Simulated scan of single mutants.
Amino acid sequence: MNIGTIIKKAEELNTISIDDTLGKGLKIIEENDLLSLPVVEGKKFIGILSRQYVYETYFKEDGGDKKEFLERKVKEFMKTKVPSVDDLKMLVEEAAAMFFANNKLRFIPVVNEDEELLGIITKKAILERFRFIYGMNEPRLVIYIYDFKGKLAKITDIIAKAGGNIRNIVQADTEVLGLQEITLRVKANDIRKVVKSLNSHGFEVREFRE
């Protein structure tokens, strides 16, 4: 799955220009409960204005006249060395790796060949996509079994016949006499019917979270 499916488009974003005042930028940030803002010149992406950096700078300068401080220009405080991407076909996993590599990264700007801002990728959007892919919003079932290969097919068949749809399966070796832990995310109109059916076929669901 590529980032084109989770991009927040430029026209949906709050942005600020290099010659706008710091006060204007902070007002937009605070009113929209943001951590930072894309800085643009026309449509071209220039950098970001970080609320944390602005506050840190103010206190490092021993405060001073707040009104005068807020009249200063965004270009004095923006960060220009911001990793960006220019390929909407980039995998969501690759974008996630960029956030892991730089924990100070607030969002990933997506630009075209002219460096015009097309939109941004946020951590929240990536998390929601992974939650969807791996069925994290669905009930969680945990079963312990021996003979993984022989019994997994039976488990999936039982779930399907009980009206369940498996969204994700994770198998882990407990390192105890060949015992395997099977964690499933299952979507069903009646998840308790699925659990009951598994139990009736001899599979004990050790953990069940709706």
Rank of each mutant, 00 (worst) to 15 (best):
E76L: 06
K161T: 05
V111G: 07
E204V: 11
I28M: 06
D87H: 09
V92Y: 07
V176G: 02
T156R: 11
V54L: 08
A10M: 08
S197R: 09
N165Q: 09
N137A: 03
T183Q: 10
V74S: 01
G47C: 04
V110G: 07
F59C: 02
M1G: 09
I191F: 06
K154R: 11
D20Y: 06
E31H: 05
F77E: 04
K44Q: 13
K8S: 10
A95V: 09
D86K: 14
K73C: 02
N2Y: 12
F208W: 08
Y53K: 15
F148Y: 15
I166C: 01
D19K: 07
N189I: 09
I133W: 14
G119K: 01
K89T: 14
L34P: 03
M1I: 09
K73S: 13
D157N: 15
R185Q: 05
S50K: 10
I133M: 13
I133L: 15
I120L: 07
V54R: 00
K104G: 08
K89Q: 14
E68W: 01
A95F: 05
E128T: 09
I145M: 07
K67M: 11
A95Q: 02
V40H: 03
Q52N: 14
K154Q: 13
I120R: 01
T174Y: 04
L177I: 12
G63R: 01
K196H: 09
D190R: 07
G135W: 07
L184R: 07
S84I: 11
A160R: 15
R192G: 09
I29M: 04
I28L: 11
K43G: 01
R140L: 13
S50G: 04
A101W: 00
F208K: 07
I126T: 06
L26D: 02
I18L: 08
Y146H: 14
N103F: 12
V111L: 08
D33G: 03
G25Q: 04
K73P: 05
F107K: 01
S200C: 05
N112A: 06
I145C: 08
I155S: 08
E68L: 11
D65N: 15
L22I: 01
I159M: 04
I18D: 01
T21H: 00
